[in-house]
């Protein structure tokens, strides 16, 4: 196993939206996930090696002008003070390139949401309203002005740190979220915008935090570099495909 990664055992979760007649439960194979979000320091080493992803070189099709804004605004002298904070203002293209450089990949939505269900004590908290309320509390706190170092963040059952309450995190298939965005309550997708999507319906509207993540992904563009958005990488476990219980 790569250093800094933890093994997530096979399992699954109930997605917020599911297809009409589709499975209520999505199985997830065992995989490896970074224990911590990628930090500014780690991302700087990537950029030093792959210079096309440096702020001064990156092509505008891969990131907007906010790309790595904190490097020039908060820590223009090296990365003093922010080295161990989660890297933010990275676009999906850049995050993907980073994981690829590390021989990893971005986690997909199902993997991320599955791990996000874990509390400190259990891999799946189920309908624990207490846990949901705590996650929601984090989400409704105004964006924190100073991000914590990744080591100082909340740790869940799997040993994964900072999944909730620090920054939003990118997933590989963010563009599978199809809410049209016109209305927050809109779970019926507009048929003129999407082909054959009318059958998607919310499963558990009480999981408002999951709904927020879904809505965030559905409004995200692959070039967007957002100050409250970071990422971590995942890897396959050799031979783990299709061995779900």
């Amino acid at each position: 196993m790569q250093q800094g990664m933890v093994r997530i055992e096979a399992g699954g979760y109930t997605p917020l939206f599911r297809d009409e007649g589709g499975p209520p439960f999505i199985a997830v194979d065992a995989f490896l996930l970074d224990q911590y979000p990628v930090t500014n320091g780690e991302f700087a080493r990537f950029v030093a090696s792959e210079q096309r992803w440096a702020p001064q070189n990156i092509k505008p099709v891969f990131a907007d002008s906010n790309y790595l804004a904190q490097w020039r605004e908060v820590a223009p002298q090296g990365l003093e003070g922010i080295e161990n904070q989660p890297v933010t203002n990275v676009s999906w293209f850049a995050a993907r390139a980073y994981c690829d450089w590390r021989g990893k990949r971005l986690p997909n939505v199902d993997e991320w949401e599955y791990v996000a269900m874990a509390s400190e004590e259990a891999p799946t908290v189920g309908d624990d309203p207490d846990f949901q309320a705590r996650v929601l509390q984090w989400y409704s706190t105004p964006a924190i002005t100073r991000l914590p170092d990744v080591q100082d963040t909340w740790r869940n059952y799997w040993g994964v740190h900072g999944l909730h309450g620090v920054v939003w995190e990118l997933v590989n298939d963010f563009n599978t979220a199809l809410v049209s965005g016109e209305s927050r309550a809109d779970s019926e997708l507009e048929n003129s915008l999407f082909c054959g999507a009318g059958a998607a319906a919310a499963v558990d509207p009480s999981d408002y935090a999951a709904f927020m993540r879904y809505a965030f992904r559905s409004s995200y563009g692959a070039r967007s570099s957002i100050s409250s958005m970071g990422f971590r990488c995942a890897s396959d476990v050799p031979g783990a495909k299709g061995v779900n219980p």
Partner: peptide, 24 residues
């Protein structure tokens, strides 16, 4: 396919076994 779709802002999602919901 994912990368090119993301580049052009196209969203899509498998719906069941046979269909793929996608941006028009």
């Amino acid at each position: 396919v994912l990368g090119f779709a993301a580049m052009l802002g196209v969203r899509y999602r498998p719906m069941g076994e046979r269909d793929i919901a996608h941006s028009n």
